[in-house]
Amino acid sequence: MKQAPVRRPDPDRRGRLIDVALDIIADVGVAGVSHRKIATAADVPLGSMTYHFDGMDDVLTAAFTRFADHVADEFEAVMCRAADRDAAVAALVGLITELFDSDRNLVLTIEFYALAARDVKFRSLTSAWMGRSRAALERHFDPLTARLLDALIEGLSLHLALERDRSDRAVEVRTAIERITTI
């Protein structure tokens, strides 16, 4: 008599698949990710993908939601620790100069923005991420300044991550923040 296959417990399989999807996106981009690649990398049956996700849009939504929430959580924690406006400026200098020290985070952010730019369904995720960033900034700055700082963080972080000359980054970033925040 043939025995039924032993099922191994995997209570966080969906979460693991999301993490693997992020790794694959960081490696080959949104265009290169597939259910098969994720299942293979996670060492699960391909059917697990259709069990846990309604399609590739669902996978991408879950992956980029996890990524945005992680970055936003870290950002909020840093801004919450800043006791006053000067500490908030110093915290922003650190965040901007270190945000994309990880090539993975840089690539995931660019892939996320490109996806949202191409497909309106993903813009609510980027809007929620920006909203959380602005709310954290508004602990120390008025809403318009928070919006300008949020844009500065996005743009300057990308510029700093992609340029070759990385000398005096902190000085340049502090100068930009002070110009925006000084009345």
Rank of each mutant, 00 (worst) to 15 (best):
A116W: 03
K121Y: 15
V107R: 10
S127F: 13
F122A: 05
N105S: 10
T126P: 05
R118Q: 09
F100P: 00
A87F: 01
A83K: 07
T109M: 14
L95V: 13
V89R: 06
L108E: 00
A114T: 12
T126K: 02
A90E: 12
A91C: 04
A114Y: 12
A83I: 10
A117H: 11
L108K: 01
T126N: 03
G94R: 08
K121S: 13
A87C: 09
D86I: 02
D119H: 12
V93C: 01
D86M: 01
D101I: 13
R85C: 02
R123F: 06
S124G: 11
N105I: 06
A91R: 02
L125I: 14
L99F: 12
I96E: 05
S127D: 14
A83N: 11
V107E: 15
D101Y: 13
L115P: 01
K121Q: 15
A116I: 07
T109D: 13
L99S: 13
D84W: 00
D101A: 14
D101T: 14
S102P: 09
S102N: 08
E111K: 02
T109H: 10
D119P: 06
R104A: 03
L125W: 11
I96W: 09
L108R: 00
I110N: 02
R85F: 06
D103L: 14
E98P: 08
I110A: 08
A88F: 05
G94V: 11
A90M: 06
D84P: 03
L125A: 11
A90T: 13
A91H: 05
R118D: 10
